[in-house]
């Protein structure tokens, strides 16, 4: 083969090389793995990193024959993906933004699927004295002590929730943040890595936390506040805006998530015996 190459050069020149390269490229790129039937789901890093999809998607695929490909981003990015038509279904957690997404005509209808909850993690010694069941009191204590706090600052659902809690604590983080307030601009995991490295406080969803291994000295300090509940919604991207949206398969995914089968699959996902997500789909959305 190697010895034949000069001849190929002579006969076909550059066009031949380019064609051979293109052929190699096509051969090397594997075709879509599963069936041609797949949908692209834009979801959040916290959902992906909690491990939920590893449990959920195979069950859906078995039930429907449809492969769901999840791209995990912050909720803000995921919504943007939907607006651009790069996803068929959105599975995110920022109710206000989701409702705006639907009312702007980008989504068809929002269905509530499940909730999990946020917790505040921080150093075991808890220098700011936040421990308890009140998120607002906890944040006030952190601000008062000027204790380091790692924020996602990435326009994700978790970030949006965090800003709402700060607001409830009487703080506008656009103005009131000090050097103790560290904006990582990254996903939940990286932010927890940062918090662990700096021994800082952070707001995280429980699922990511339970799946997170590099905890260092961090423990859960604030939990159980009703306000910390975190509602997930699912929406089909509007085919009227993007004609290529796989609406039939997308609808099947949404229908399955809110069906008894999907809901019990969500409830069944546990880490260390602890349930992470609580299904709460209402009949008819």
């Amino acid at each position: 083969m190697v010895m034949n190459l000069p001849r190929a050069f002579r006969h076909f020149g550059l066009a031949g090389i380019a064609a051979a390269a293109a052929a190699t490229t096509l051969l090397a790129v594997p075709p879509a793995r599963a069936a041609d039937r797949y949908i692209t789901v834009a979801s959040t890093t916290s959902t992906e990193q909690s491990g939920l999809f590893k449990q959920l998607l195979p069950e859906f695929e078995k039930a429907s024959g449809i492969e769901a490909r999840v791209v995990a981003l912050g909720t803000g990015q995921a919504l943007d993906m939907g607006r651009r038509g790069d996803a068929d279904v959105l599975f995110v957690h920022d109710q206000v933004a989701e409702e705006k997404f639907v009312s702007d005509g980008y989504g068809v209808k929002r269905f509530e699927v499940m909730y999990n909850d946020f917790v505040i993690v921080g150093p075991r010694e808890d220098p700011a004295k936040t421990r308890g069941g009140d998120v607002v009191a906890g944040l006030k204590a952190i601000a008062a002590a000027r204790a380091p706090f790692a924020s996602r600052a990435d326009k994700s659902g978790t970030h949006a929730a965090e800003l709402r809690y700060w607001k409830a604590a009487g703080m506008d983080m656009a103005k009131d943040k000090g050097p103790w307030y560290r904006e990582t601009g990254s996903g939940m995991g990286p932010t927890l890595n940062t918090a662990s490295g700096m021994n800082a406080y952070a707001l995280t969803d429980r699922g990511t936390w339970l799946n997170f291994k590099n905890r260092g000295d961090l423990v859960i300090l604030v939990e159980g506040d009703k306000r910390l509940f975190n509602q997930y919604g699912v929406m089909l991207v509007n085919p009227a805006k993007h004609a290529h949206v796989k609406q039939e398969a997308g609808r099947k995914f949404i229908d399955w998530l809110v069906s008894p089968a999907g809901q019990s699959a969500i409830a069944a996902y546990k880490i260390g015996g602890e349930q992470l997500f609580f299904p709460n789909a209402k009949p008819g959305g």
């Binding site: 990193q49 996903g187 995991g189 990286p190 927890l192 997170f212 590099n214």
Partner: peptide, 17 residues
């Protein structure tokens, strides 16, 4: 299973701590 390669898998595991 579709577009997860070594580097993005490393990034993901790093995210998970």
């Amino acid at each position: 299973g579709v577009t997860r390669v070594m580097t993005t898998a490393i990034a993901l595991e790093t995210s998970k701590g």
